[in-house]
Design a protein around this nucleic acid. Structure first.
Lengths: 201, 201
DNA sequence: AAACAGTTTAACCATATGGTTAAACTTAAT
DNA sequence: ATTAAGTTTAACCATATGGTTAAACTGTTT
């Protein structure tokens, strides 16, 4: 089996990403993927034995990329507040590049949680997290203590939701005279930083 | 055509809600809906002419319920800060009752934005919003001024995302010793209130 | 050039899918 | 009891769907 970067295999994976991310495992059609890749439908089965296997390749790739991103936490030498700001920058950059990724992952997990339970075991256990750094900062008195896990939930909410809901916001914000792609996204990033600055004062 | 509350029609709508919310328009199967409702597949077409019509009934209902909820903004006599806290309570209550609704609406809009553009015209234009009340509070000097639209985006992020991502959080928070259904949800609500309190000081 | 392995295609196959139809059933009005 | 209208069902239909197969094509090795 050609594990090398066959152009065909790449084309298939690219097309599969596009179609699976839009319609999900159930909603996606193999013919649609083949058409998008510009190849014969039988080739899909030649490179990936079945729809499920092809989906797994796409989903595993997404999961890996997503959790890698979420564990980019910067140098420990940098002050925690600055690291949090960089974290916000990273998240906005990531979600700008992959706006559908959160939706895809969350939706597929909600349809088939068992599968995720299986996969989460294979993901490198408990990767780097900002939580220990926050706790350290509490001890050193650099930050007023609060629950770091709940804080990270809030932080992710502020960063991820605008992208998740961007199909909605593109319509709604326009009514208020904002353009999502041009200014709104950056204004929101700025406001997230202000929001957490208040909390960190 | 029986527009009265026929038990069969209700059963169909209930089942359709369940299946469409889980799999979306493309992914849902009419047979699945019929089985869930415990009726014959042909009955679906008797009450709703086609899959699309049935979907529309479900989606329109969801859209109506969603936008109604988002425009419950409380009495103008109540101070703005209290009204915002009540707004948070309302959102958490709403998302607890309909945890899949945000995902459903956003996902379907992202697949078919044109349809949403059509429907949004029929929704009562520009329903009640907290934004004018915020602006009024700025003028009266009750609040330090900030962009009220962007603030509402942040507020919705903080409230909606935890529910959207709950399939993920149910797994991830468990690793940190939190149980989503028992305490985490309430702790997050509390933290959202603190978060916006900082901003409003 | 012959042999060979890897790749691609067209033609299939069985089943699933959205939808239709005509007949059977139910219920209330005459 | 008969009629009529609304409701429900089983049996179909055409097409879409995931998947298979055997043959054809391509490039490399001998």
């Amino acid at each position: 089996m050609g594990l090398k970067d066959s152009t065909t295999e790449e084309k298939i994976l690219e097309a599969a990403k596009e179609v699976f991310m839009k319609y999900g495992l159930y909603g996606a059609r193999m013919q649609d993927i083949a058409d998008t890749a510009g190849i014969n439908k039988a080739l899909l089965h030649y490179y990936f034995r079945s729809k499920e296997k092809l989906f797994d390749a796409v989903f595993d790739g997404a999961l890996e990329k997503y959790f890698s991103q979420m564990t980019v936490i910067g140098e420990k030498s940098i002050p925690i507040k600055e690291r949090l700001m960089l974290y916000v920058d990273n998240m906005f950059e990531f979600f700008t590049e992959y706006p559908q990724m959160s939706m895809f992952i969350i939706k597929e997990i909600s349809i088939n949680p068992e599968m995720f339970h299986e996969k989460v075991k294979h993901i490198k256990q408990q990767k780097a997290s900002l939580i220990p750094s926050l706790e350290e900062a509490f001890e050193k008195g650099e930050l007023k203590p609060f629950d770091p896990v709940i804080f990270m939930v809030n932080l992710h909410s502020l960063c991820a939701y605008p992208f998740l809901a961007s199909p909605l916001y593109k319509v709604i914000l326009k009514k208020h005279g904002y353009n999502w792609d041009i200014e709104a996204k950056d204004q929101i990033k700025q406001s997230v930083k202000e929001f957490i600055s208040f909390k960190l004062q």
